[in-house]
């Protein structure tokens, strides 16, 4: 829609030069990339199976019933057991399992051992299991993916609504601005948490319903900033020039004002992301979030605090949470510094 101007490019350069923030940014991107293809790293389906001379790639394919590989059951193949069988049979069949061979939903019960079980390398439960014998690392990893999907969608939606309404308020001003301000004031005073609790007790929220409710009550903050910025920019000469040239309101807002106020929104983004992660975790912790058995950090924290005698649950969830939120915050700080207008602002 618009090209990066030289100032923005210099800001990005400055961001890259801030080692901690940029490093965090790279780590975060790496994690995001990994979670995008989580099934290859953490999952119960084998990556490659060679059976009777044929190759199978079950990860992203339709499920293979056990009978496909000579087992006597028609449900999803248990690849870990199958691998053991291949090894004992020694007929040239082999398979490659993901490093963590569990999916976040399956309960593994061993005779005489009751979950939660502590971390075990031999079982490949690297962080142990939770109260129903599900692999903790798998739950954490997929929980991260859920949280990030939620946070990024939240970011996009909140900014889209907040920026559009905020810019319109600042640009049009007058009665529209006055009315919208009052509406925003009223709306932002709604007890958001109670509404989530009420909704969650009536219907079981899925990702979209939860996202909808949260966005519905979170777009207001952004409007204040955008309104101020738009007010300021609107009075600048280049806007007047554009108007003289016959540009419509839409064009002026999106092509002229928006690129100039974007740096403001960018500095907020990381904090919005960390806010969204915390919010989802809190809701899950309280039991008003995503329905079971969706893997989520809040649910893990809740389990962990209820089972302090199994410290690996609460500590893994806690450490994961701290690490991710710190990374996001470091990125945020770096962006804020790189986009600091005091360094680069140019007055006409």
């Amino acid at each position: 829609m618009f090209r990066l101007d030289p100032i923005t490019r210099r800001k990005l350069q400055r961001f890259r030069s801030l080692k901690r923030g940029y490093g965090s940014f790279l780590v975060l991107c790496g994690l995001l990339l990994m979670s995008a293809c989580a099934e290859l790293l953490v999952g119960s389906r084998a990556l490659i199976v060679k059976y009777r001379g044929r190759y199978y790639f079950p990860t992203y394919a339709a499920f293979h019933p056990g009978t496909d590989f000579g087992e006597d059951y028609s449900y999803e193949t248990n690849y870990r057991k199958l691998k053991e069988r291949f090894a004992t049979e020694n007929r040239g069949n082999w398979m490659l399992l993901p490093p963590v061979p569990y999916n976040p939903y399956e309960n593994s019960f061993e005779p005489g051992v009751y979950p939660p079980t502590p971390p075990s390398f031999s079982q490949r439960h690297f962080l142990g299991t939770d109260t129903t014998g599900r692999d903790l690392l798998a739950r954490l990893f997929y929980g991260f993916r859920t949280a990030m999907i939620f946070a990024l969608l939240f970011l996009v939606l909140v900014y889209a609504v907040g920026i559009a309404i905020g810019c319109a308020m600042g640009y049009f001003g007058g009665a529209f601005d006055l009315l919208m301000q009052r509406a925003v004031e009223i709306w932002s005073n709604m007890p958001f948490l109670y509404i989530v609790i009420i909704v969650a007790s009536i219907v079981v929220p899925n990702l979209w319903i939860l996202l909808g409710i949260v966005v519905l009550f979170s777009w207001t903050d952004m409007t204040y900033y955008m309104r101020t910025a738009a007010y300021k920019e609107k009075a600048r000469d280049y806007v007047a020039a554009a108007r003289v040239l016959g540009a419509g309101s839409g064009r002026i807002i999106f092509h002229h004002i928006l690129p100039n106020v974007l740096s403001l929104t960018i500095t907020f983004m990381p904090f919005t992301v960390s806010g969204a992660i915390t919010l989802l975790t809190a809701l899950d912790f309280l039991g008003f979030g995503l329905p079971p058995p969706t893997p989520s950090w809040g649910e893990l924290l809740e389990q962990g605090t209820a089972n302090l005698d199994a410290p690996w649950i609460v500590s893994s969830a806690f450490v994961a949470m701290v690490v991710i939120l710190s990374l996001v915050t470091f990125v945020g700080e770096a962006i804020r510094e790189a986009f600091d207008p005091k360094k680069f602002s140019i007055y006409q």
Binding site: Y75, Y105, E106, N107, P292, P293
Partner: peptide
């Protein structure tokens, strides 16, 4: 119930 769900999928 989550265990019940997993088993039912079989």
């Amino acid at each position: 119930l989550t265990i019940l769900r997993q088993e039912a999928a079989k």
